[in-house]
Every structure is written in structure tokens, then in C-alpha cells.
Design a protein around this nucleic acid. Structure first.
Lengths: 177, 177
DNA sequence: TAGCGTCAGTTGAAGCATCAAGTCCACATC
DNA sequence: GATGTGGACTTGATGCTTCAACTGACGCTA
């Protein structure tokens, strides 16, 4: 019954297992640094970082969710926590009454400015400086291919049936750098 | 005060952001397939899969935790759940009274046999078949470099002070394939 | 064989993510 | 201008992960 399955070759399996291990252990390794030094989760760090780089230090919730690769629900909870700590503020959008804008306070900016160097140092240590420029470029390219594939599949399931998409971003943010 | 930080170059930043996005979205994409088709988390899948491939369908808890890239505590909770569903059994080890052996039941074997094809198909679709063999190999190689770096850092913090290590596996399981 | 440090695993509490409603607003249609 | 549909969040409940004790078992030393 399950015999026309195309199992992975040994080489493919090894590469896949290494990637799977990386997806579990690298986030954990980064989280532990952030948690220890800044008492932030990686998601919280992303949110603050994206806010700090946005014009007016202000971004729409839905946009922020897409940038941070998270669901709107998750972001809402996180922003509530960040708000409680005084790092962000919420206000309704002037243009669109449905939208909520999140604004980074001075305290929030100070927080991310203080936390960024340690985090970048860790990213350098574990990833960027560990690889040759060619390896890093190849890694990034492979990631983009897979991400595009994920987006394509999300889009398909969206067209196929009316069910909700996970976080549905259009991967149109290639303008970061 | 924070001015001797070596920030990332645009190229480095782009590669890093793509990797960061991948680490969040690929696990989610795989989980959703497993959840929908098999009602399993990826971690549960890993546990069952490792058990099914082990001699006697039986593995020590601590060994299983290392193979699955998870903490012993997490594994213990998960095994409790799997036990409740009748897919695994626990028994004390004969050789070492401290150790607990986890054994995959027939029902558990049937479960993983039924779930594997769909999961492998998804991994193929999103990753293995999306990349050229060279890209996949390069991706795997980059992952190994980073994983080794993470292990090295874990080891350092272990030598430096007596505190507990995260999940401390020795990355000595390169014999999977 | 008693004592001590360590290892292996379990457990309960606390925190975070996910899921399913629910609310409010905008826009199109009649 | 009333109605309906869909978008943009928010909220509460549920479940999983993590963290910090805690329990026993092993092995060494005396």
C-alpha cells in the first residue's frame, strides 16, 4: 500500500537530518543568548528590531506580523506583553479604522539598541563568521528557494479551499537590505 | 558604548534574514501537514521514527532525547502522551536501574508506517526536490558547520562553569544514513 | 557498608503558542 | 442608507515546552 513512496537517498537523508537538527537547535541557541542577556524571546526581538527600523518607529500589526513570520494572534499577545513593559504603544490607525498601529517608545528603542550588539555578535559567531561568504550565499539562496516553495503551497491551499492561511505573507519583502 | 559592533553587511543580513525566516516557517509548514494528516507533532514523529529504526524498536530515554534534539523533560512528557495513546511502552532497563527504555508497540509501528510516506512526500516537495543535488549538499554542509559551532559553544559553557547544558548531545550521531 | 557526588528520569507549575470565536470597521451592492 | 461580506485585529481556552525541584539508582571512597 505504501510501496510507491520515493524514500530519501542516504545523501538526501543526511542533508535533511542536518537541516532538521539546525531548525531546532539554532533557534534554541539564539534564544538562550537573548533570554540570558536581554530577557527577550527571538520573536520579541524581531518585533522590536523591525519597529526600530521602520519610518516613524511605527508599523501596522498585520505588516509587523508578516515581517516577523508570525500569526496576527501571536503578535497581538506579544505586543500586549511588550506594551505592559512600556516598550510599545498601540493606537488605531488614522487612515483605516480596522488597522492598529504599533509604535516603539523611547524605552523600547533603548531596549533594542542595548540588546542588538550581543545578538548580532551571537549570530556572527554561530552562523555568519562560521561560514565562508560563498557558503553563506549558498545557504541564503537555498533558503529562498524553500521559502518560495512554501509560499507557493500556501497559495495553492488558499485557492483550493476557503480555509484560512497560516500567516499568509506574500514574500514581497526582498527590500530589507 | 555600542560602537565597535561589527554589524552585518547587506548581503550577510539578507542571507541571515532568509535563514531566520526558514527556521520559523519550514517547521510550521511541516507541522501543519503532520498535524492534518496524522495528528502528530514533528517531535512526536521524530520519536516514533527513531524508535522504529532502532534494534528491538527500543531506545533509552536519554539517547532518544539526543537523537530527537530535545530535552529529557520534554521527551518524558511526550512519551507519556504517546504511552496514553498506546504507541509506546516504558520499562526500566535491565542493565542500568536508572535508565528507562522506551519500546514501540505494534500500534505505534503501524502509526509511523502510515504517517511516514506523507511526511517524506512533504519534505521532498518543500526541500529535497526543490533544490538541485548540489544545492542540497551545500545546504547540508552549511548546517553541519553551524551545528558543530553550536556544540562547541555548548561545550565551552560547560567547561567554564558547572551550570547545566541545554540538551547536551555530543553530535556523535553522524551514522544515521 | 555507609556516605557522597553524579546520573537518569519524572513531575508540577508557569509561560508561551495556537486555535476558535467574537468584535468592530470598511467597502460593495442593492 | 441598509444590508451583507470580508478584513483586521483581540480575547479566552487549551495544549505543549521549559524550568526548577525532586526521587532513586549507580559508583567511588573510606
Amino acid at each position: 500500500m505504501t510501496d510507491d513512496v520515493r524514500w530519501l537517498s542516504p545523501d538526501q537523508l543526511e542533508a535533511w537530518l542536518d537541516l532538521a537538527a539546525l531548525m531546532i537547535r539554532l533557534p534554541a541557541a539564539l534564544e538562550s543568548q537573548l533570554q540570558r542577556d536581554a530577557d527577550l524571546s527571538q520573536f520579541e526581538y524581531f518585533v522590536l528590531a523591525h519597529l526600530s527600523e521602520s519610518p516613524g518607529r511605527e508599523v501596522r500589526m498585520s505588516e509587523l506580523a508578516a515581517m516577523s513570520n508570525g500569526s496576527l494572534s501571536r503578535l497581538s499577545h506579544v505586543v500586549s506583553r511588550l506594551e505592559r513593559k512600556g516598550w510599545v504603544l498601540r493606537r488605531p490607525s488614522a487612515e483605516d479604522g480596522r488597522a492598529t498601529m504599533t509604535w516603539l517608545t523611547d524605552a523600547g528603542l533603548a531596549k533594542i539598541v542595548a540588546s542588538a550588539p550581543g545578538h548580532v555578535e551571537r549570530v556572527r559567531d554561530l552562523v555568519v563568521d562560521a561560514l565562508t561568504p560563498e557558503q553563506l550565499e549558498a545557504l541564503g539562496a537555498a533558503c529562498r528557494v524553500v521559502l518560495d516553495r512554501i509560499d507557493a503551497r500556501d497559495g495553492e491551499s488558499c485557492a483550493g479551499r476557503p480555509g484560512p492561511r497560516p500567516a499568509g505573507r506574500s514574500r514581497g519583502c526582498g527590500d530589507e537590505a
